[in-house]
Structures are given as C-alpha cells and as structure tokens.
Simulated assay, not measured.
Amino acid sequence: MSANTSNKIVPKNVPYYDRPRERLLREGAAHLSDAELLAILLRTGREQETAYQLAQRLLATFGDLHGVAQAAHSELTDIKGIGQVKAIELHAAFELGRRLRLASRKNPAVIRLPRDVADFMIPELSHLTQEHFVCLFLNTKNHVIGKQTIFVGSLDSSIVHPREVFKEAIRRSSASVICLHNHPSGDPTPSREDIAVTHMLRDAGELVGITLLDHVIIGDGKYISLKEQGYM
C-alpha cells in the first residue's frame, strides 16, 4: 500500500529513481526542468495525475514559467489540482526569486550608458502587467542612491507631476535623475505622450538644477532610450 502511495507522485514516463526530488539531490537544482522544479513545489498531484503532470499542465496553460509567475491567484486556483495553499506557495516562491534578483543588485555599477539602466531595471519592470513609472536618483559619480515608483497606471502628462519626481530628488540630494517606465505590451516604442512627459520633466529639471539624464522605456527584455533617440 505504501509503495503504491509513493508511486502516485512519480511521473509515469520517468523511472522511480529519476523522481525530481532525487534528481535534485543527485545532480543539483540547475539540472532540473521547469516542470520538475514546479512538481517539487506542488508536492502532490491529484487522482490520475502526478505532481509532475500537473506541473506540465500548469506550464501549458500559462505558456511558460514566466506566465505561471505572472498568473493571478484566482487564475491559479482555477486550475484543477491547484488549491489555495498551492497557489500561495507558488506566489511566495516566485516573489522570493524576484527579491533575490533585486538583492543581488543593491550595489549597482556606475550608470553611464542607457544599457546600464536597462540591465539594472529590466528584471524588475519588463514583466509587469501595468505601467510603472520609476525614477532612479544618482549622485555626482552616477551611482544610484535611490529608487522610487512615482505612480502605477497609464502614462499621462496630467498624472506625472514634476514636483513628485524632483521633490524626491531634492530630498535625496541627487545630482541627476533617470526616469523609466514599462510598456506591458512588450514594445518599448515611445508614444507621443511618452515624449511629451520627457520634455516636461527635462524642463522642470533645468529649473531646479537637477538634470534629467534619460527616460528609458522597458519592453519585454528590450528597451529604448529617449536620449539615444534624440528626444532630449
């Protein structure tokens, strides 16, 4: 009876000795597939379906691991075999991964090029489902000394108030500011509103003596610098 119970969580097409847990211990987590790692988090499947098979179905439903990570709680619990507890544990695991990426960048390199800005912020912004307008505050040596999300929502010049951007810059004694926002569509091409906001912030920065170095738009793993594009 106990042997049958144990075999319920073993993928039908994978030998007993190649269970994900055993493979992780034997070979290390880096050698496991996305489905195998998810199966370890899920722990159990349901009747007629192993944890591994449930993980495969989860990936197929949302397209890939990124899709699973971005799924809302209600979307996860709509999947047969994913209850409240499993959905919460998945959210927690993905959030820990996100925080680990952020923690590894707490002492960023000097920001000198738009590519530096993109490398610093793409992991945080490229997969968000809403627009986030973020400011990086730099010292005279171009080190990032602070980061602030100014607002969440569609970019509009009536919403982005220069006072919010530069109030924070002044409070931090910043020498310059870099603004960023993401395009959830994945296409970082600037809109007319993006360009108008850039001009407004550039002009406001000149008035208060804090330079707007760039406005970078983040897409799906891609970016566009409005400075490089000649809009500043």
Rank of each mutant, 00 (worst) to 15 (best):
S104G: 03
H143Q: 13
L100M: 14
L96T: 07
I224A: 10
M121K: 03
D116N: 09
E164Q: 10
L113F: 14
V134D: 00
N107W: 05
E95V: 04
T44V: 08
A30D: 11
L76G: 07
T189Y: 05
H91F: 03
T149V: 13
I217V: 13
P108N: 09
D18L: 12
I88K: 15
R98P: 07
E95H: 14
L180C: 06
R202K: 15
G230K: 01
S225E: 02
Q130P: 00
D64G: 10
S2G: 10
L59E: 03
N107Y: 06
I195L: 06
I218R: 02
I195M: 01
H127L: 07
D187I: 03
L207S: 03
V197N: 09
E164R: 12
G63R: 11
G83D: 02
G97N: 09
D194R: 00
C135K: 00
L201W: 06
V144E: 07
I9C: 01
H181E: 07
T61M: 05
A87P: 01
S6T: 04
M1C: 14
N182C: 01
K147I: 15
I178L: 05
V177T: 14
F94T: 06
H31I: 02
E27P: 08
Q53Y: 04
D156G: 02
Y52C: 10
E228P: 01
K86Q: 15
R101C: 10
S33I: 12
S6C: 02
R99L: 13
G146F: 09
R105A: 15
F62A: 10
E89S: 08
M1W: 14
I122Q: 07
A87F: 05
V160W: 00
Y231I: 11
I150N: 04
H215D: 06
G28W: 02
F166V: 04
V85P: 03
D34F: 06
Y16M: 03
E36K: 06
L125S: 00
L90G: 11
L155N: 01
C135H: 02
V216S: 05
N7Y: 15
A29N: 02
V177K: 09
I210T: 05
F120R: 10
R23V: 13
T61C: 03
T129W: 01
E47L: 12
V117F: 09
H183A: 03
S173C: 07
G146I: 10
S154A: 03
E206G: 12
E95S: 10
H199Q: 04
